[in-house]
Design a protein around this nucleic acid. Sequence first.
DNA 1: AAATGTTTCGCAATCGATTGCGGTTACGTT
DNA 2: AACGTAACCGCAATCGATTGCGAAACATTT
Lengths: 338, 338
Amino acid sequence: MSSPITIKDIAKALNISASTVSRALKDHPDISRETKNAVNDLAAKLRYKPNAVALSLKNSRTNTIGVIVPEVVHFFFLFRHSGIEDVAYDAGYNVMVCQSNEMYTREIINAQALDSNRVEGALVSISKETHDFAHLLYLEENGIPLVFFDRAPEELDVDKVIIDDCKAAYNATTHLIETGCKRIAHLAAPQTLGIGIQRLAGYKKALEDHGIPYREDWVIVADSFELAGDATRNLMHLPTPPEAIFAVNDMTAVGAMKTLQRMSIAVPQKVAIIGFSAGFFSDITTPTLSSVDQHGYEMGVEAAKLLLQRIEAPVEGKHKTHYIDTHLVLRESTKRKS
Amino acid sequence: MSSPITIKDIAKALNISASTVSRALKDHPDISRETKNAVNDLAAKLRYKPNAVALSLKNSRTNTIGVIVPEVVHFFFLFRHSGIEDVAYDAGYNVMVCQSNEMYTREIINAQALDSNRVEGALVSISKETHDFAHLLYLEENGIPLVFFDRAPEELDVDKVIIDDCKAAYNATTHLIETGCKRIAHLAAPQTLGIGIQRLAGYKKALEDHGIPYREDWVIVADSFELAGDATRNLMHLPTPPEAIFAVNDMTAVGAMKTLQRMSIAVPQKVAIIGFSAGFFSDITTPTLSSVDQHGYEMGVEAAKLLLQRIEAPVEGKHKTHYIDTHLVLRESTKRKS
DNA sequence: AAATGTTTCGCAATCGATTGCGGTTACGTT
DNA sequence: AACGTAACCGCAATCGATTGCGAAACATTT
């Protein structure tokens, strides 16, 4: 109930000045042993804790980094454990999390909130709606370093920690081809997102390199559990339905899988499925889900590390793109290579 | 790169005092139209934004609430969308998220961080290790209202938003009984947690009320995907293995399910399974998982609402326990009632 | 013309902690 | 006795924004 103990309270109680208290607490040599003991004892007794807000104002350092993600959920699909917080925590930073709910307008408000709160840097994974990045770049102009992760703006000179989506998609698709599938569909992310574009590109290139014609009606934008169900139903009702599906993420892949099962179509015998993310999901479905592991934890760690680096030393020259390795995790939803 | 624009910068540029700028920005009647226009124009041009840190210091209001959870993941299993952020956001609050990683020591540090940062209130779901609550209660003594959610300390006069774990467990177990199962095992949470104790109690009571003897060797503390696997294997190797499993949460239920499948034991024909939480998981397993829906989103919403209420008006008298309704979601992992 | 009123704005204190600089003791030295 | 010098500590400014109070400058009233 009582208001927090301040340095003045201690000063008044001990009949000394606030400056002396401050110095005593920091073991400044100017202060006598005796005074220090008195101050420290009282501070401990009163459970004094420095006001971080006042320190922030004084030092112009908030020891806080901001995170903007489309949905907090996203975090988890990607991370399971958030590497971001582990790194930030070890470095003595707090984390302020904002979710844009996949809305451009809300992302703007998030950015302003981080700006007002004088975070020292921000980690951003952009929303599906975001087509313009002024609200984010403005942070950087304002001295708040920015690192994008997972979903980063394409062709913009900013710091990014991402995977090589094109290559990963290429590998996933190629695996389907190598296990004998020729008619391969793709459940894609919106083409506003770099990951949507790149994963589609990788898919296309894999087909091309293996002499398989690209068919537009086998590519459907559907990147959620629910959308994947509808899309899969439609695909399977085509005159020539696909015999494999490359899904842009695991949720989508699972949506497709469940729908196929409901249609009594055997996975992977009739239709093979490969997902993307290798989150917790891929373990628990039946059959288990083959997927592209994008090492979400490492991504979080690297993004946070890069951000801290930028906070310590502002960018000189060009921004950096850090690629996180990916690898295929082959489970039961795809066929074996023969 | 340049440091943020302050009210002084505007004052200097316009050759007026900081007070005038402040008042002009707030449309104070003392200031002439002319001056207001000049100030507003320059502020807009310079993209002035008030320093939230300075305001916090001045007003002793940070507009931030803290959240301590065992793991950010937990959030997700429970919420899918975090109701907390939605409510906080609408009320103009920022959210500072800390994870204890299920560690008591780290929870203490989290609490201190929230205290130092002068959050205006805190939402807490305690770690498995937490046996003492002084570090949290201290926040409340310090004027920082506290609302526990999901995992709350038992028998402590604090604000809580929880479910009636005992009753929910009772219902889940009863359902297993009603579908013809008599030998029912329970994969429990650590008995340090209220939810662990209550869910076990509900399980016991259901057995008792239906004249089924309680067997200690059918209760195993195992509340993760991995632990559930081992526990299930052990259970099935007993002389008289169970024919149903009530798991303390969905992760655990899924761990059991996958293990049974690996042992070629049919779910639900040989062993029925019911979980707890009704998160996203329950939809995607094969068979789909029956579970107790604890309405995680609402829990987050109610917890945040209660906290905001406490922030506005400190507690008078006794603390409140808000119960969130639960209901059984019956899917494929349990048998039908005959 | 003096007095009162109105408009418009600045001074200074405040929030909590820090820190350069200066001031006050007390002690030792010559 | 006079001066020097540590040892110790306080004043006041600072960070950015707000606000009570007072003070100008000008207009209006009597």
